[in-house]
Design a protein around this nucleic acid. Structure first.
Lengths: 191, 191
DNA sequence: GCGTACACGGAGGCTCCCTCCGGTAAGCTC
DNA sequence: GAGCTTACCGGAGGGAGCCTCCGTGTACGC
């Protein structure tokens, strides 16, 4: 993305960055269905400017998400460093779930991206997520704490489901806890 | 609901029934976010008429759903009759999932209703669903094929998640299959 | 048959999505 | 530093949806 950024004029770059920053706040507060016009308004630019930089909602979301991917990288390293192997996959999937839940409604588009064969902007954003999940899963399988017939793709789907369940309905409820427990039992080996 | 139906005028009743029928088709085709105005148009009534009968989208959805609850009743009886006890809970939850997935996006509002303490129209619609799940779950637990520390509420939440996952993203994909498998392992008892 | 209360439906205000185009200023060249 | 080119800006505007209000019409009890 951003193609050759030397080609972008200074005012364009400024507006683009501003739009992403404002969008980040809006999405965090109102979810992914927040009004794009309101974002443009708050950024002090016209709607045309927003739509030129980000032809559709997903493009903007993808950029917002890229800002956050640093956090997920840190989480990955922290999990690998601090959590013993028996719980590492659980911990990582918890991070993925939380990452997806940060922005209410994001998990939906992300699953869409997960599915599609063609590389949508969001699809690229979650490839790394799947790759990391594969690493932790393989490790858990070798240690004998995860079933060998589950895939990283399935697990990311599960995390998305939990994020969805947690951010659907009244906020602050613990609806997803029971489901998370069931899922953990479900991919765990042995017993 | 419908309070005292003797008090409703004939033309009102006719319009109401027509609106529900049209809404059923629209929701089936376009999901729960379908345009209410379009429903009114197709039913040949003004928007005002629609909003008088159904003050908000959820009220209309609840009525549509009540029409379908007969199907779920049949499914319950069929499952109880034809499926052996080891698989009965699986089969029932599959029915619940499919019921929720029939209308794309319905699972969201349903989970909202599941959560709230106060009886929303949709909340009433799914009480019966939970009650039946409790019966099948208790049976499975007595037979030793289901863990004793899962609740019917959790299981309905799981079915909602699967329905959501299945109806999110490109249609026709089998995204939810892996997750369903993991969940089934998760609530099953024994090794 | 008549009167009234109930129900109808469309106009209209609001928000949002997205596009198009005239104007503006950034940045290169000399 | 002046001037030109062109990338970029931003707002007007059309289309759609949500929902409300109110003048009109008509079903039904008497």
């Amino acid at each position: 993305m951003a193609s050759t950024d030397r080609a972008m004029r200074a005012d364009a770059r400024k507006n683009r960055d501003l739009l992403i920053a404002v969008a980040r706040e809006h999405v965090r507060r109102h979810g992914v269905t927040t009004s794009l016009e309101a974002i443009a308004r708050d950024a002090g630019v016209g709607p045309g400017t927003l739509y030129r930089h980000f032809p559709d909602r997903e493009c903007l979301l993808a950029e917002v998400l890229r800002l956050e991917s640093d956090e997920l990288d840190e989480a990955r390293d922290r999990v690998a460093r601090e959590v013993d192997v028996a719980r590492r996959l659980d911990a990582w999937l918890g991070e993925v779930e939380q990452h997806m839940a940060t922005y209410r409604g994001l998990s939906g588009p992300l699953v869409g991206a997960l599915e599609g064969a063609e590389p949508t902007p969001l699809g690229l954003a979650c490839q790394e997520m799947i790759a990391t999940t594969e690493r932790f899963l393989a490790e858990a399988q070798e240690a004998g704490v995860a079933r060998t017939d589950v895939t990283a793709h399935d697990l990311v789907g599960c995390a998305a489901m939990l994020a969805w369940l947690g951010s659907t309905g009244p906020a602050g409820t613990r609806q997803a806890d029971g489901a998370r427990d069931i899922l953990r039992h479900g991919y765990r080996a042995g017993a």
